[in-house]
């Protein structure tokens, strides 16, 4: 459900560590309800940028607004309005499904009553009702991943950041996971996703590719393929990397 409303704007985002420039004048917008792919090789500056957008670290300079809040001065407010999930899934093995939900939801100060009704809804939707009181360590990997994503958007954030969410997961589960992502985007949540898998880049509404601290390309997958005159995203990526060398 892509809209025209900008939910993330970055103007000349710069992050320096000493003399090293990790993010060199990044400029991009992300629209509400969009699935935005954030690609780049390791060390290209992806993680640094995500940490800034999540309110974890302060940018050196630039105007950055996330969910309507300033990344310099309103980092606490940003944190309240976003969700986050990494490839580690980050659920507690020794807690049950419902305990995990209750814990994470509690952090976002959702009332106990609300948590209960949303939990029931969620488990019904995922078909996990029977697993409510099972320990996380006893449920299959694919379920864990779905649950981790559902928990990341449980507090109904405006944006959810997914940091290589499908790392180490088999193709079928990955495909199912992308169904969940689309569902969330349909519901109006903006999805900001990093990935190593180039086939996944094709699923995004728009893709930005970072090379050595700069955004080297930003467009829809189709336009990118056209302008680089190649058949798939993998080749776009390789061409960009080669240009730099």
């Amino acid at each position: 459900m892509k809209t025209d409303e900008k939910i993330i704007t970055a103007r000349n985002l710069v992050k320096k560590f000493g003399h090293f420039v990790a993010n060199d004048h990044l400029n991009f917008d992300v629209y509400r309800g969009e699935v935005f792919g954030f690609l780049g090789a390791n060390g290209a500056g992806k993680t640094t940028a995500i940490r800034i957008l999540c309110g974890l670290s302060e940018p050196t300079s630039g105007e950055i607004m996330v969910a309507g809040f300033d990344a310099h001065t309103q980092r606490d407010l940003i944190k309240k309005n976003i969700g986050y999930m990494s490839q580690k899934f980050s659920l507690y093995d020794d807690l049950t499904v419902s305990e995990n939900i209750r814990f994470y939801a509690g952090i976002y100060e959702i009332s106990a009553k609300e948590i209960r009704s949303r939990t029931d809804d969620l488990l019904k939707r995922l078909g996990f009702e029977h697993a409510k009181n099972k320990l996380i360590r006893d449920i299959p990997l694919g379920w864990k991943q779905k649950l981790a994503f559902s928990i990341a958007i449980f507090h109904r954030p405006q944006i959810v950041f997914l940091d290589e969410p499908t790392g180490g997961v088999d193709p079928i589960t990955r495909r199912q996971f992308w169904d969940l992502i689309y569902e969330a985007a349909q519901g109006g949540i903006t999805v900001f996703v990093t990935t190593h898998y180039m086939d996944e880049a094709e699923y995004c509404d728009r893709v930005s590719i970072m090379v050595e601290g700069r955004i080297a390309a930003l467009d829809t997958p189709d336009n990118l393929k056209k302008s680089f005159n190649v058949a798939n995203m993998d080749e776009v990526f390789r061409k960009l990397a080669r240009n730099i060398e």
Binding site: C54, L56, K79, Y84, S90, Y92, Y104
Partner: peptide
């Protein structure tokens, strides 16, 4: 190790 620390740091805590 679990990666849960990351989630906690991104949260409003």
């Amino acid at each position: 190790e679990l990666g849960t620390m990351e989630i906690l740091l991104v949260s409003p805590l």
